[in-house]
Amino acid sequence: MPEPIIETVALRKTYGDVEALRGLTLQVQAGSICGFLGRNGAGKTTTLKILLGMMRPTSGEARVFGRRADDSTASVEIRRDVAFVGEDKPLFDYMTVSEMVRFTAAFYPRWRRDLERHYLGIFGLSPAVKVKTLSRGMRTGLAVLLALCRDARLLILDEPTSGLDPAVSEQVLQALVSHVASAEMTVFFSSHHIAEVEQIADRVVMIDRGRATVAAALDDLREQYRRIRFVFDDDAPAVPVFRAEGVERVSRDGRVLTVLASGGAERIVEEARPLGPVSIDVIPVSLKEIFLESSGVEG
């Protein structure tokens, strides 16, 4: 397995008495679009900031392109090949669109003028307009333009489509997809919009209370997670302890026993058959349900 583009090992971050990250371990491989899902306050933004050298971890390791993200010199080198779009779309409000472009382009020798023209058009940005007067959609468009035109190997985005109408959202997603279409480009983005993650991501990492809970290819999650419903003639038996692996949660409601499985549905079904259910339903589980389950919300 080639070296991951992003890797954290037992990453911890404490501010005062708040433990934002409590031993986060994750990897992101090159050439993938990886969605980073987590509730508010789960530690997503903290993780991204540590990767970019804006914060230093309390303990543990964070690496980008194999280099330590908490080393100041290495971090400057990392940022030569990374584009970051923060949650509030950080930009210099006092500059105009063209000044922002010139400022950013000055740092990236491989600047793509063709993409610049393309995205100025797509997002409807006029060069002479001051950044502080841009609407939310245009501001995001500009931030995305500045990120993509750098020709960076890695894009890191924090909630890129938050607050955007569906049309602009789709344009942003399309821009991200076209970036990865050339090999060796990677996108790592955090989001609350599960549908978008399902649409463009091929891998997903879920974080809850400072730790990684699920890390898998999206297709694997779709093929492995199942909700199995056993209906009995009389009251369902007391919750059995399954020997088969993959049982995430078992619940009982009158004559129905429901098992949430993260894999091995067939073996679980076989193990439960002797209990004599009247019917067995095996149903796919949506990413949203997997997410809610992994962040401890009653599904």
């Binding site: 993938s32 679009i33 997603l173 399309q174 997809v177 990865v180 279409a181 463009i200 091929d202």
Partner: peptide
């Protein structure tokens, strides 16, 4: 092509490739 189709449908090019 993989890339144009991925862009048109706004899905991951790896998915089209798969």
């Amino acid at each position: 092509g993989i890339r144009p189709l991925a862009e048109r449908l706004v899905i991951n090019p790896n998915t089209v490739a798969k």
